[in-house]
Structures are given as structure tokens and as C-alpha cells.
């Protein structure tokens, strides 16, 4: 097995993930693209572990660790997405821009009214 085949495949998968993260608007699709990027890294780790014959199996063990971390990340990410959806009724990334440096609309320079604050939690619902 030439190492260049898995390495090129991993590079392509990583680029596809980069495209997905940048181009998608739905947060869950962004999370899927992040998983694609993590899988590209895993493929690299496995390929180089097989090539280098590590006696400690560092590459494959690290692959298992990355898989576990990816699962934890996805669980937390989906919890955050659900919290955002509960508070704002949207999961679209470019609608959640409270922390952005927004351009003030002309005519109201500096005094742009903030949108009505959304209650942080539903309370007993």
C-alpha cells in the first residue's frame, strides 16, 4: 500500500469538510462537516501508524481517542444547538450574530437599537 493514497484521500476529505464548515448555514450540517474533518485526521493517523510500525501503536490508539473526543464534542455541540434553538427558534449560524461587530445602518450611526433580548432560559417549561 502506497502511503500516498490514504494521505491524498485524507487531504480531500479534509478539504470537503472545510468547504462544508464554511458554506453551510444549518448548524447541524456544520457539525457533520467537522466530523468529516476529524475522520480525515483519523485516516492519516491510521495510515502513518501502519507505515511506521509503531510498537506502541500510537497512531491507532490516538485514533480511538480522537473518535471518543469527537463523540463528546458532538454531544456537547448538539446540546448547545438545542439550547440555541430553544431560545431563538433558529439553528442557522448567520442569524446568531449577537457577538458580531455589526455595521451600523446608515442614519442611526452609533445608536442602532439592540434587538429585544431573548430570555436566557425558558424557566419551568
Amino acid at each position: 500500500m502506497h502511503v500516498v493514497y490514504p494521505a491524498v484521500l485524507a487531504a480531500l476529505l479534509f478539504s470537503i469538510g472545510v468547504y462544508g464548515v464554511l458554506a453551510r448555514r444549518n448548524t447541524i450540517l456544520v457539525l457533520m462537516s467537522v466530523e468529516l474533518m476529524l475522520n480525515a485526521v483519523n485516516l492519516n493517523l491510521v495510515a502513518f501508524d501502519v507505515w511506521l510500525r509503531d510498537t506502541l501503536h500510537g497512531g491507532q490508539v490516538l485514533t480511538l481517542f480522537v473518535i471518543v473526543i469527537a463523540a463528546a464534542e458532538l454531544g456537547l455541540g448538539l446540546a448547545i444547538v438545542l439550547a440555541v434553538f430553544r431560545n431563538r427558534r433558529t439553528v442557522e449560524i448567520d442569524h446568531v450574530r449577537d457577538l458580531s461587530e455589526r455595521d451600523d445602518p446608515p442614519g442611526q450611526a452609533g445608536e442602532a437599537p439592540e434587538p429585544a433580548p431573548v430570555p436566557a432560559r425558558d424557566g419551568a417549561s
Binding site: L12, V18, Y19, L22, A23, R24, R25, L29, I93
Partner: peptide
């Protein structure tokens, strides 16, 4: 509306990443 408005920029960045990495 699953894609945001910066598809072209994303395509450029991804193609650049792929070119450099490959």
C-alpha cells in the same frame, strides 16, 4: 437555504486547502 451566502469564498478556501495539502 441550507447554504449561506459565502459559497464562493468557501469553495475558494477549500480548493486552496486541497491544492496545498495534496
Amino acid at each position: 437555504d441550507l447554504d449561506s451566502g459565502n459559497r464562493i469564498a468557501a469553495l475558494v478556501v477549500a480548493a486552496g486547502t486541497a491544492a496545498v495539502l495534496v
